[in-house]
């Protein structure tokens, strides 16, 4: 049992952005462990995707092709990848921590009697042994996790933990690809996925904003949002929010930043009353300058912040609006 296999995600012939991060992770871990690196991509009609993956330096690209993989289902993906893993017996299997991976990878690992180490933020190799770091308690604690016993060992990597630009390209001619046809039966796919849809057209494009002032749970009541609106205005910023605010209907969903909302990278991001759960951080940690205003000094948002004020936002924000006028 050897090698590091990156399982990449694609949709309609295009690789998911985080697939490149998983590729970089597998290459890095493979190099440090001195093991070969493979990639796999599952779906139907994958010629283009296969070529895109083969442009990277890999010992082999497994193209898992089947008509029953055209529309994602947990049952078909789990069965197909289980067959691939049992055939090639990689020591490690690395996924990007996407919504789709969260839907099937835990079942895939469990079907082989293993536990997926999910949402990994860092790794190290010491004496040939791999240690993974993941977050606990909404980012307030980190944990070092190790695998026990024989592989395959499964891990998914958090958005941004590995950088896609670090994925190494193949030198020339591209990496070898091999088409694999899994044995799948329609009758064993229990879920029936219907059309994908969006609920509303987006009127606000937060991704184009230079400055964003974002509000979280700390605001307590819908009536207090106006205060944050004033701050946004004083800074020449767009108003955004973390998920709970949009769930409550206090601001429209299109203003939500985070893994289920928009990913933004403005010049200035001001997080007011946002604790900094990882689902929010992945949506804004690429911002150039980050400011956090929160009453809890231990809030993970301060870890991401360049500047911070620990204090009651209901006192700090009015003072800030005043100071901006000067």
């Amino acid at each position: 049992m050897t090698g590091v296999l990156a399982v990449l995600e694609q949709f309609e012939g295009k690789l998911h952005g985080m697939s490149y991060e998983a590729l970089a992770a597998a290459q890095q871990i493979g190099a440090e462990l001195g093991q070969p690196v493979y990639a796999a991509v599952a779906g139907a009609g994958l010629q283009q995707v296969a070529a895109a993956v083969a442009a990277y330096r890999l010992d082999k690209v497994h193209v898992v092709e089947h008509g029953l993989l055209a529309d994602y289902t947990a049952d078909a993906y789990t069965a197909a990848l289980k067959q691939l893993i049992e055939l090639h017996r990689p020591a490690y299997v690395i996924f990007p921590h996407t919504y789709q991976v969260r839907d099937f990878a835990p079942a895939l690992a469990a079907s082989l009697g293993r536990v997926l180490v999910s949402d990994v933020i860092a790794h190290r190799v010491e004496n040939g042994a791999l240690t993974l770091v993941r977050q606990l308690f909404q980012g307030k604690m980190n944990a070092d996790v190790r695998f026990e016993g024989d592989g395959p060992h499964f891990a998914s990597v958090q958005a941004g933990a590995f950088r896609s630009e670090n994925a190494i390209k193949a030198e020339s001619g591209g990496s070898a690809t091999e088409v694999v046809t899994p044995v799948l039966e329609a009758s064993r796919i229990r879920t029936k996925p219907l059309e994908r849809f969006r609920e509303s057209q987006r009127a606000v494009d937060l991704t184009a904003a230079e400055r964003i002032v974002s509000v979280g749970r700390g605001i307590r009541e819908v009536g207090n949002i106006a205060l944050i609106e004033q701050l946004a205005e004083a800074m020449g910023a767009e108003l955004a929010a973390s998920r709970p605010i949009c769930d409550n209907g206090w601001l429209p969903m299109e203003r939500q930043v985070g893994s289920s909302g928009q990913t933004v990278a403005p010049k200035l991001y001001v997080a007011v009353g946002i604790s900094g759960a990882i689902q929010h951080l992945v949506g804004m940690k690429g911002s150039k300058t980050i400011v956090a205003i929160n009453k809890d000094p231990e809030a993970p948002i301060f870890e991401a912040a360049d500047y911070g004020i620990v204090g009651d936002l209901f006192q700090v924000v009015p003072a800030l609006i005043e100071a901006l006028k000067k």
Binding site: L136, A143, V145, F147
Partner: peptide, 10 residues
């Protein structure tokens, strides 16, 4: 198949 080695403040 996995072991939590230690936890610590980031």
């Amino acid at each position: 198949s996995v072991r939590l080695e230690r936890i610590y403040l980031p």
